[in-house]
Design a protein around this nucleic acid. Structure first.
Lengths: 217, 217
DNA sequence: TTGTATTTTTGCGTTTAGTGCAATAATTAA
DNA sequence: TTAATTATTGCACTAAACGCAAAAATACAA
């Protein structure tokens, strides 16, 4: 029925699954290389399938669309973040949880040397930019769920966490834009640290500002 | 050279411009009606052009893509918001500026009775959702620019305002989602008021929480 | 090994979005 | 009226994406 063999609880690939995985990787590698070389719009699916030596029709058996090839690699980020949130110490404050989880997830994601080039590709391909925004939206809901799972509050808490997630994801997004624009003289770890420091400071200021205004009327 | 005649500083439409505007409105109306009836994907451009009685080719002379028809109507929102920000009293606090400007811009935008149906259409059409996110991104930068123009601070202030804009836009987005999900028993004005009240309260709490944590280490 | 069931890959045809170009029609200005 | 602009259209073309059925590769059982 299936090619997967279980031995000692581990999973062993059959020839079928191995080849399928290899083909997928071949398509992905060929596509990304071509995208970076000729641009996203300047690359046709046929170009990709020829480079990867599969039929045009097979492409769609592996990826639902041309765009998905670009975003498939980072599909895991949201899940990794959720895991990282769950892995934070039980008694940590929500602020510490977010900072800790995001830093570790970011470091893992940026380990891939291609991530920078892909970021640039997304940045100057309008259709990919639009698609990219959706990633942030998904990230936001996943983060909300992960946080909500930790501190199982009520309905009231949910809005708070959605907003907090939105703030955090916005910070990541804005930070990412900065990271791509500015000279990256400092390592990511410190960059993230600085960014969070600024974020928290701004939130403190903002809180004080709002409080001041609320009490005034 | 141009058909526009200026009389007393007002602009008078020539026949050409009037017809062009009418055609554009006809296409837009036909498209939206069909989208709401058969769904976005279930409507072809030919359906639209037949209903609007123009050639298929002309459609692309008015709209660059099928999606743009959906989003054209709300293109003005960001500008209206920017204007509303500029129109707030000079001495108002940034918090008051945001609340005031957004409330007025929202009320104006929601005056269109179609906006609710279009919101639903966007919500359950994936490709439109992705596109919609981009609107929020643009809104965010416009809001940032408008706020930055008011309180001409330095580089430091810019990050703060970007983040603040992100927070506000996220609030609008999340509020909008709520507005579409929940029974809309209360009028928009009160809804917005409640939403902002919650937002400010959360920001105060969050500020305190962060401060507490920062001072602890 | 051989036969059989399952899965993968491919080829082919079709629909639809979107573009380029050149011809035609409508509008404006002289 | 004529000449110049501008708008509209038809036609051909590219490319993405899907459905379907044939062919190839793989797994498995006897």
């Amino acid at each position: 029925m299936t090619d997967v063999q279980e031995i000692d609880g581990a999973v062993k690939e059959g020839r079928r699954e191995r080849k399928r995985r290899q083909t997928r990787e071949r398509i992905e590698a060929a596509a990304l290389a071509l995208f970076l070389e000729r641009g996203f719009d300047g690359t046709t699916i046929e170009d990709i399938t020829e480079a990867a030596d599969v039929s045009k029709r097979s492409f769609f058996d592996y990826f639902p669309s041309k765009e998905e090839v670009v975003f498939a690699w980072q599909d895991s980020f949201a899940d990794e973040l959720a895991d990282a949130v769950a892995a934070q110490p039980k008694d940590a404050s929500i602020v510490a949880v977010i900072e800790g989880a995001l830093t570790s997830a970011l470091l893992a994601a940026m380990a891939d040397p291609q991530s920078l080039a892909i970021g640039a590709l997304i940045h100057d391909t309008p259709v990919l930019s639009a698609r990219h925004q959706l990633k942030y939206a998904k990230l936001e809901t996943k983060l909300t769920d992960a946080l909500y799972a930790r501190s199982g509050g009520g309905e009231e808490e949910l809005l708070r966490l959605r907003l907090l997630s939105a703030i955090v994801v916005s910070t990541v997004r804005i930070g990412g834009e900065r990271w791509n624009e500015r000279p990256q003289d400092l390592p990511l770890q410190e960059f993230a640290q600085d960014l969070f420091r600024e974020l928290w400071a701004i939130l403190v200021d903002l809180g004080a500002l709002v409080e001041q205004r609320s009490s005034r009327r």
